[in-house]
């Protein structure tokens, strides 16, 4: 059995490396779509000399193939280049800001799971009732609201009107509450919908009836047998949603002046700090490919049917 697992693991690793390479190459290609980013960085007023200097600094005067190989080499040696506006290594700045974003994503995800899963189970066990319909409606609503707008509305209510919580910046746990709640909405809706779908499918399986017939209590049937078997897709979506969550994080960090990666990315774009943007994109891409592959491997470890 363990040899099968090792072989599976190796195959996953191979697939992960290919996906990683593709994602990183996509990021490179997207950054070079215009051919020459310097005109966009310097604006229309730049002299040819300035442009040449910047091109030399960024290595853009070389052929695309050389640039691409340098780029890959940088990634492998964890050299993500130097920022144009801060004159610091990009990786250092990213790692400085990362904890803030992780805090936000982690707290948001925790809330999403803590509320979304029970909501989904509730809806599945009471299929077709008022509970079910309300939960489903809430979930659909959660996927239709622009998250940052929800953030603004929460600020309006809890910070401006009621004055219970701070409207922005970081520092204490109070500062984390509103942004985390805002972040949690979209994944919560997703988790709830998926839990409901996955649960109601499992609850129709004969072994649930047979567990009931053996006299097990309904609650333990639902949680042990039902949720145990329904949890794999939920786990997937939790990790995959982290990607969507990062997308949301940029706008949410902006609304709450939260000093995370998203703010850094926005600053980088506003100052046309091309190397920093590229570093953030590549860093994010690597993180997500690795996360995805971890989920896949975790699945194999949890679910005996996939072996």
């Amino acid at each position: 059995m363990s040899r099968v697992l090792v072989r599976k693991g190796l195959r996953h690793l191979g697939a992960a490396l290919i996906t990683l390479w593709l994602a990183v190459t996509m990021a490179f290609a997207l950054g070079r779509l215009s051919g020459d980013p310097t005109s966009n960085i310097l604006g229309p007023m730049a002299t040819p000399e300035q442009r040449d200097a910047l091109q030399a600094q960024l290595g853009l005067d070389q052929s695309l193939v050389v640039q691409y190989l340098d780029y890959l080499k940088g990634i492998v040696t964890l050299d993500f280049g130097t920022s144009l506006q801060f004159y610091q290594p990009n990786l250092d700045m990213i790692l400085d800001r990362l904890p803030f974003t992780l805090q936000l994503v982690g707290a948001g995800m925790a809330i999403a799971v803590a509320i979304g899963v029970p909501l989904g189970v509730l809806a599945a066990t009471r299929e077709g009732t008022w509970w079910d319909r309300t939960a489903s409606a809430l979930a659909l609503l959660g996927q239709s609201v622009p998250v940052f707008w929800l953030g603004m509305m929460l600020i309006l209510l809890f910070a401006v009107r009621l004055g219970w919580l701070p409207a922005g910046q970081s520092g204490s746990w109070q500062h984390l509450v509103l942004p985390a709640v805002t972040m949690s909405l979209y994944p919560m809706a997703h988790v709830a919908r998926l839990t409901r779908a996955s649960m109601s499918e499992v609850l129709r399986e004969p072994y649930i009836d047979s567990a009931r017939a053996r006299g097990l209590r309904v609650r333990s049937v639902v949680w042990r047998h039902g949720f145990g078997n329904a949890s794999a897709p939920v786990l997937t979506i939790v990790v995959l949603q982290a990607g969507a969550l990062l997308s949301g994080a940029v706008a949410v960090e902006y609304v709450y002046s939260w000093p995370g990666l998203g703010q850094l990315a926005l600053q980088a774009i506003q100052f046309r700090d091309f190397p920093l943007v590229q570093a953030i994109v590549v860093f994010g891409a690597i993180t997500f490919v690795v996360l995805n592959q971890l989920v896949d491997m975790l699945h194999v470890a949890i679910d005996p049917r996939l072996r």
Partner: peptide, 24 residues
């Protein structure tokens, strides 16, 4: 299939940042 996987592994904001930073 590989391309789809790679694409879905990239959060939309990263693609948006990459394109907008070079294109305005």
């Amino acid at each position: 299939s590989r391309l789809i996987d790679a694409q879905l592994a990239l959060p939309f904001i990263l693609i948006a940042l990459a394109v907008i930073s070079s294109q305005g």
